[in-house]
């Protein structure tokens, strides 16, 4: 147990300590010390400026995340099961994987206007190929032995999905969710910066124009904290649950 606390607390403590040290050495407004940043963070929270923006960004993140995961999983499974389709669309997938995020965002705004829907669409398009590729791999790796067993014992379709397919895809779903969350975080801010007038991205844009480094860092901390919470409260327990049968 002691060990666990050490590994949870010591790394961030060391990070903050190094940051403080560096701030002392550099001694410039461009790298504010941790204390200064945390007080700005506290101020931003108490004045009620940070949380609404964080909430808006989170909402965009969740909506696009669920759309991308659902559609991506469906497409990934179909491509994993159907070789001809996979062969046909493989090049599409590679193209979409490699279109720079900025290009999709700009095009979405140009084509569909500076709207919420265009913003969400841009995020989904960026994330989708990623999910498709991961789930396609997962589907290809499905073990044929288990399907034969299920077929010879007359498993119903629902039983096959619940007890044979999903447990095998679980690690791939978790992997897609993890990498997806990280990717969407990065993209959602750019989307907001370019075409929205609220959210974290928009705020960061304002701070950038004012050269307000302390605020930028304060917002980053709020951000990272939320991501850590999602990881700890949702993803880790899901992961543990799925792994409990392993030796």
């Amino acid at each position: 147990m002691q060990n666990r606390w050490f590994y949870t607390l010591a790394p961030p403590a060391l990070l903050i300590f190094s940051w403080q040290l560096l701030a002392l050495v550099i001694n410039s407004a461009l790298l504010p010390a941790p204390f200064e940043v945390f007080s700005v963070l506290w101020q931003a929270i108490t004045t009620g400026e940070l949380l609404p923006n964080l909430g808006i960004t989170l909402a965009r993140l969740l909506v696009s995340f669920f759309i991308a995961m659902t559609i991506g999983t469906a497409i990934g499974i179909i491509l994993g099961l159907r070789k001809p389709l996979d062969r046909f669309f493989d090049s599409w997938l590679i193209i979409f994987l490699n279109i720079p995020a900025l290009v999709t965002i700009i095009l979405c705004y140009v084509w569909f206007g500076l709207t919420e829907a265009a913003a969400i669409l841009a995020i989904v398009i960026n994330k989708l190929p990623n999910v498709v590729v991961t789930l396609r791999e997962g589907t290809r790796a499905l073990n044929k032995d288990y399907f034969e067993m299920a077929e010879s014992y007359n498993f119903s379709r629902a039983k096959i999905i619940k007890h044979v397919i999903l447990p095998q895809l679980h690690p791939f779903l978790i992997a897609a969710a993890r990498s997806g969350l990280a990717l969407i975080w990065k993209i959602v801010l750019v989307v907001e910066l370019l075409g929205r007038s609220d959210g974290m991205g928009y705020q960061l844009h304002l701070f950038f124009q004012l050269f307000d480094v302390a605020s930028i860092m304060a917002y980053t901390i709020a951000f990272v904290t939320v991501i850590q919470m999602i990881e700890l409260i949702i993803l880790k327990p899901l992961d543990r649950r799925a792994q409990r049968w392993r030796r």
Partner: peptide, 19 residues
């Protein structure tokens, strides 16, 4: 089967009941 083909993510009892 030649290999037992038990679903590793289900317990022994669940494997039997599922069939």
């Amino acid at each position: 089967f030649q290999n037992p083909r038990l679903l590793p993510w289900r317990t022994v009892r669940e494997n039997i009941d599922l069939a």
